[in-house]
């Protein structure tokens, strides 16, 4: 293999500096800062704080509301991940069958992905709008009054629905390209050996999609936890009241609305640990198997 050699040892360092600067200032420094301030009880007016050790964490775990929000976050993450993967897969399988129309189909679904989260949230909210929202009207047809932002369950439903809606296209695209990379002859060999299309899908096609599916699983969990912030924010308009929210949104509410920096930092440290665990899990599994070549 050909290697490009640098004439001076400081040259690569120099080239790395911009990237390193960004990482340090926007990732490591805030992370360290969050960890530090999670051990302090912040003065509400910003005049320094008192060191309290792990007390912020203990307070959190005894806080009923925090536990309730954790539970909601779990439900939220599981439903968003499951349904956006499921819809993405179903659409991809259908699209894969009618390959001719696939390019327009793909573009149409990609539009949704190109919509920024707050806009998707807005559009979603407008679907659930009091009175004349499309979905509200559909519910009204069945005699149910659907009120987002007031009724806990209705808001939860709307949040989950809009978050799924936003994530389906990316899953669709990945699944579709995964499906299209399954060699035609393998499918045909299976067609000759197995007469049931359903059974074929689960014994041949899906296992071949497993690497894609696993990658998407992790991406979708991360999305549900963090990237749904915009959607939730638009629905709650920064005034959570007794509406459902996720842990990420809670960090924002406590830190920026409630000016409770210590507790909020502790919460974000917990989320960081979660992401770390997820990443470790992902790399472990990727190392272990799930690729066949």
């Amino acid at each position: 293999m050909k290697r490009a050699a640098f004439t001076h040892p400081w040259m690569p360092v120099l080239l790395l500096i911009p990237q390193l600067t960004i990482i340090v200032f926007f990732f490591y420094w805030p992370a360290v800062e969050a960890l530090r301030s999670s051990f302090y009880l912040q003065d509400p007016f910003g005049f320094g704080g008192t060191f309290v050790g792990l007390e912020n964490y203990f307070t959190l775990f005894q806080n009923k509301e925090y536990l309730r929000i954790s539970l909601f976050t779990v439900i939220f993450t599981l439903s968003v991940t499951f349904f956006s993967l499921a819809f993405g897969l179903v659409f991809a399988v259908k699209a894969d069958k009618v390959l001719r129309g696939a390019s327009t189909y793909k573009t149409m679904l990609m539009w949704v992905y190109a919509v920024a989260p707050p806009v998707a949230g807005l559009l979603g909210v407008s679907l659930f709008y009091q009175g004349h929202g499309l979905i509200t009207q559909i519910f009204a047809l069945f005699g149910y009054e659907f009120v987002v932002g007031v009724n806990y369950k209705d808001t939860a439903f709307a949040m989950i629905a809009v978050s799924i809606w936003k994530q389906v296209p990316i899953n669709f695209i990945f699944f579709l390209s995964g499906l299209q990379s399954v060699p035609r002859s393998i499918r045909e060999a299976a067609m000759i050996e197995n007469g049931s299309p359903f059974n074929r899908f689960w014994t041949i096609t899906f296992p071949l999609l497993a690497p894609t599916a696993f990658f998407l699983l992790i991406t979708n969990i991360t999305y549900s936890l963090f990237d749904t912030f915009g959607v939730i924010d638009v629905m709650l308009r920064s005034e959570p009241g007794n509406n459902p929210m996720t842990l990420t949104y809670k960090v924002y509410v406590d830190g920026f609305r409630g000016n409770e920096l210590g507790g909020s930092s502790a919460q974000s440290v917990i989320l960081m640990v979660l992401v770390l665990a997820l990443t470790v899990f992902q790399f472990r599994l990727i190392e272990r198997r799930i690729h066949y070549t």
Binding site: S185, I186, E188, M191, I192, E193
Partner: peptide, 16 residues
């Protein structure tokens, strides 16, 4: 699957 045949493909088409 109902024709009682078996086929061998150029690129083997084994299930990876």
């Amino acid at each position: 699957a109902d024709r009682d045949i078996a086929m061998v493909f150029q690129n083997y088409a084994l299930y990876p």
